[in-house]
């Protein structure tokens, strides 16, 4: 059983996007407008690569670990473009390191296309997974903004970004949980399973549910404790996203 052939244009798009991102990193030393333009170019090439894969398999292209990391990097770079407004270099570089790392990690996995099995063929899949990835990317941004706060950037930009991105991540993840629950019901007859991936998704949701309420507790809302918790949140996100596939023995999710 051979999968569809990988489109020839994918390789050049993959390399070109990497080059554009690299140039955007170097442009940290130059004018912001150039940096943003290069980042947007990288995103466009990155997205084109993902769309190309989707067209080749005639389905939503999130069927392998390669595509998972490739798509997550796309979401991180997209959030980075929005995070430009926070005005903090540490915030930007934090996001860049995470996005760049996941982009680089795709080289560890086969680029071959794989078709979606019947259980993935549901409307809930393209609703649930991208919403989760966007939330992870937003929470990564909140952590990067937290790091900027801890490293002495006390301006309103990173702090506002930490709060806003944690909130947006929580709101989008809440919808993702609803979509995921609906998928779980139609696929397994249960909206929740004692499965590491699902339990950690709930851990992340509970964690950020508590985090977004910190603003009502003055002691918890102080910049340093809140920024430290944003970094803890990043660990939670990483365990939820990749840790459950690599650290735990029994999971129904392959990524």
């Amino acid at each position: 059983m051979n999968g569809p052939a990988l489109p020839a244009a994918f390789g050049p798009l993959y390399v070109a996007a990497a080059c554009a991102y690299g140039a955007a990193l170097l442009a940290e030393l130059g004018p912001p407008r150039l940096r943003r333009a290069l980042l947007a170019l990288g995103l466009a090439l990155h997205l084109a690569g993902l769309v190309l894969r989707g067209v080749a398999i005639a389905y939503f292209p999130l069927t392998s670990k390669f595509e998972s990391f490739y798509a997550f990097a796309l979401f991180v770079f997209a959030v980075l473009l929005v995070a430009e407004r926070s005005g903090s270099r540490v915030h930007r570089l934090g996001l860049f390191v995470v996005g760049g790392t996941f982009y680089a990690l795709t080289t560890l996995f086969p680029t071959a296309l794989s078709e979606a099995p019947p259980l993935m063929r549901t409307v809930w899949y393209p609703l649930h997974v991208p919403a989760s990835f966007l939330s992870y990317a937003l929470w990564t941004s909140a952590a990067a903004a937290g790091l900027a706060t801890l490293l002495g950037n006390r301006g309103p930009g990173p702090r506002r970004a930490m709060e806003d991105h944690a909130f947006w991540g929580f709101a989008i993840f809440s919808l993702s949980m609803i979509f995921g629950g609906a998928w779980g019901y139609v696929a397994w007859g249960a909206w929740f399973l004692w499965d590491p991936k699902l339990v950690w998704s709930l851990v992340a949701w509970l964690f950020y549910g508590a985090f977004v309420h910190l603003k009502y507790w003055p002691a918890g809302n102080a910049p340093r404790p809140k920024a430290s918790l944003a970094l803890v949140g990043f660990l939670v996100v990483m365990v939820t996203y990749v840790g459950t596939s690599f650290l735990f023995r029994h999971s129904s999710h392959s990524f």
Partner: peptide, 29 residues
């Protein structure tokens, strides 16, 4: 609000701990 926030973090902590326990002692589950 402090109570609610702390209960929320505690719930997340216990659940995270549970995945580790379930993974280390699968025979109990």
């Amino acid at each position: 609000q402090r109570f609610g926030v702390l209960a929320g973090f505690a719930a997340a902590f216990f659940l995270a701990l549970g995945t580790v326990v379930m993974d280390l002692a699968p025979e109990a589950y």
